[in-house]
Nucleic acid binder design. Structure first.
Length: 209
DNA sequence: AAAACGGGGGC
DNA sequence: GCCCCAGTTTT
């Protein structure tokens, strides 16, 4: 028995309202690079890294000419720093060469960039360009199923289902809010259901009782 | 489908 | 010490 679409939307809006995610910088280039650095990494770990990185390399032109060894120490805290260094330099080179130094604002061009997959591309589209885009990560996938919005086994299926259920104006905000909600309350293991503001609308909570 | 990439924080 | 993190690429 699936939860009604209206209730899903209502709950989604509540999560977005209670767990907002602020974006300090919405410059597409910075969003792109910092999101690549944030992959499989808590964003606290990359905040300092990106700040120092952008103070030294302010544009794709500058970053494209960087030596990987010169940025290892700047982004080390992000983890996978050798791979990520190589990727952001390569990305910068492509931006300079193919896109006149600008970040493309469409999905297919973004996906051509090394280290940019569906999730990263959609984050860039929404945060950098304000375009409605649903980036399904582990939080969105886990929480949507836990709440009983959908029954899916893969993030791809989750993305497909959620685009059908959620109105476009929620596609962008839901991602960041799910991350905050997932970290503070709806954790992968031992979620704080007793503190959860939407537990009354949650299948997982209902079944637990 | 599974492995590899990786340091940092929470418990 | 073990698990997880605004995943993607390679095998």
């Amino acid at each position: 028995m699936m939860i009604s679409k209206d209730l899903v939307i209502k709950t989604a809006r509540k999560i977005i309202e209670l767990f907002p995610r602020r974006h300090s910088d919405t410059d597409p280039f910075k969003v792109l690079i910092s999101t690549v650095l944030s992959q499989r990494t808590r964003d606290e770990n990359t905040e300092v890294s990106t700040k120092e990185l952008f103070s030294k390399f302010k544009s794709p032109w500058e970053l494209s000419k960087a030596d990987p060894h010169d940025i290892y120490h700047l982004i080390r805290a992000a983890g996978m720093y050798r791979q990520k260094a190589q990727r952001i330099i390569k990305i910068s080179k492509i931006l300079v060469k193919e896109y006149d130094g600008r970040v493309p604002s469409n999905l297919s061009d973004l996906l051509k960039l090394p280290g940019v997959g569906r999730k990263t591309a959609n984050i860039v589209l929404f945060v950098g360009f304000g375009i409605p885009a649903l980036a399904v990560d582990t939080h969105v996938h886990r929480i949507s199923n836990r709440l009983g919005w959908i029954k899916t086994t893969t993030p791809e299926a989750t993305e497909k289902e959620l685009t059908k259920i959620l109105p476009k104006d929620l596609w962008g905000p839901i991602n960041g809010s799910m991350v905050e909600f997932g970290r503070k309350i709806c954790k992968p293991i031992n979620p704080f259901c007793q503190k959860c503001p939407v537990s009354e609308f949650c299948e997982y909570f209902k079944e637990k009782r």
